[in-house]
Amino acid sequence: MKLLIITAIAEFEKEIKKILKNAKVKTFSFKEVTGYRDSTEDALETNWFATEMNENTSILFYAFVSDENVDTLFNSIGEFNKKQESLSHIHVAVTNIERSN
């Protein structure tokens, strides 16, 4: 069993739900969150907001998934990210679960 964590901009919500369904992940949790990006190291001409901390509406998914579903999810998310023309991508991480009850 693995713990899967997915973060992305809110606009990717439908695509993430579709990816989870195709990977046979039937149960997951979802939360709207506020994402922050420190742009103090960006060149001034590329910082449209003229602030140091940019805030955006993001989403967080997490689910307990079986080992065999992890590769399918990572491959699907990788394919989705390759097709994106924007700088924004779906971010995914997985951790081992040592014990659960």
Rank of each mutant, 00 (worst) to 15 (best):
K83P: 05
T46D: 13
F30W: 10
S58N: 06
A23N: 10
A10T: 14
I77Y: 01
A93C: 04
F30C: 07
Q84D: 01
T72M: 10
Q84E: 05
S100D: 11
S66H: 12
W48F: 15
T95R: 13
E41V: 13
E32G: 06
T27A: 13
E15T: 05
F30G: 04
V94M: 00
M1V: 05
S88M: 12
W48H: 15
G78P: 00
T46E: 14
N47H: 06
S76N: 15
F12K: 09
N22K: 15
I90W: 00
K14T: 08
H89E: 10
E32Q: 13
E98R: 11
S29K: 07
V94W: 02
A50I: 04
I90V: 04
L4R: 00
V92I: 14
E55D: 15
F61H: 00
I19N: 04
N81F: 01
F28Q: 03
T34V: 11
I19P: 04
L60D: 04
V70N: 08
N47W: 06
Y36K: 07
S76F: 14
D67K: 12
G78T: 01
M53A: 03
S88C: 13
K24C: 10
V65M: 04
R37K: 14
I6T: 04
I97K: 02
I16G: 02
I5K: 14
F30V: 08
V92Q: 13
V33L: 08
Y62V: 02
K31M: 09
T27F: 12
N22Y: 12
V33P: 05
K82L: 09
L4Q: 00
E15L: 02
G35L: 03
E52L: 06
S39D: 15
I16M: 03
E13L: 05
E55S: 14
